[in-house]
């Protein structure tokens, strides 16, 4: 049994790539709010809940949306698919927003719609809902993307725990920067593995 990268998607503040091919360049250096709206429209995603999400969830949503295009996402068995992500900054953007809503006691109106996003694994929950994934969803906090850890974890899910597919990678949104890279990993019984899934899977060839 061989494990392979079926497809990958990267979003940085300057561009969006699908399998190394440019999908959208942020030539005007748009702030995230406009840039993500542009990407959303270009992906023709029709998902009103997107606009309720915080920036971390919007970023992971768009990355997964491009990763799981119709022909790929439709082929997943939700029960046999897991999502295992790395992240550094947790939900700091929403944390700060929630903090500001209660820190002045005389004007304290905490918002449940903000508070619900003050956990990093909510982005995994959103992806599970969107793509009907009901396997394990785990969020690991790391200072930078620990590909070796993710590799061992995901390999075990696929080889020993009966999973067929796994979405793995990195999504992070801090007050100063953001970026995401997601990989769809699958198994191959026969035929040539074009992109083997290995311990350095996030290194661009």
């Amino acid at each position: 049994m061989n494990l392979e990268i079926i497809t990958d998607t990267t979003i940085t503040s300057s561009a969006i790539y699908k399998d190394g091919t440019l999908f959208l360049a942020n030539e005007e250096h748009l702030p995230f709010a406009q840039y993500c709206r542009k990407a959303y429209q270009l992906m023709e995603a029709s998902y009103p809940k997107f606009f309720k999400m915080d920036n971390l969830c919007k970023l992971s949503f768009l990355t997964a949306e491009l990763l799981l295009t119709e022909n790929i996402g439709g082929a997943l068995n939700g029960e046999k698919t897991a999502i295992i992500l790395g992240n550094r900054s947790s939900s700091i953007i929403s944390d700060q927003k929630h903090y500001e809503s209660y820190v002045e006691r005389e004007n304290s109106f905490p918002s449940p719609a903000v508070f619900v996003y003050t956990l990093p694994n909510i982005m995994l929950g959103e992806l599970c809902i969107r793509h009907q994934i009901t396997g394990e969803s785990s969020c690991f906090m790391m200072e930078d993307m620990d590909a070796a850890f993710l590799f061992h974890y995901v390999q075990d899910l696929l080889l020993n725990e009966g999973y067929e597919h796994c979405i793995t990678g990195w999504v992070d949104f801090s007050p100063t920067e953001y970026g995401a890279e997601l990989y769809l990993i699958g198994k191959r019984d026969k035929g040539e593995v074009k992109r083997p899934f290995g311990i350095n899977f996030n290194q661009k060839v």
Binding site: P48, F109, S111
Partner: peptide, 15 residues
């Protein structure tokens, strides 16, 4: 098509 979080948010709005 509002949901339970929206309902909680509306409670905050009214107050």
């Amino acid at each position: 098509g509002l949901d339970s979080i929206d309902a909680l948010e509306l409670i905050v709005l009214l107050e």
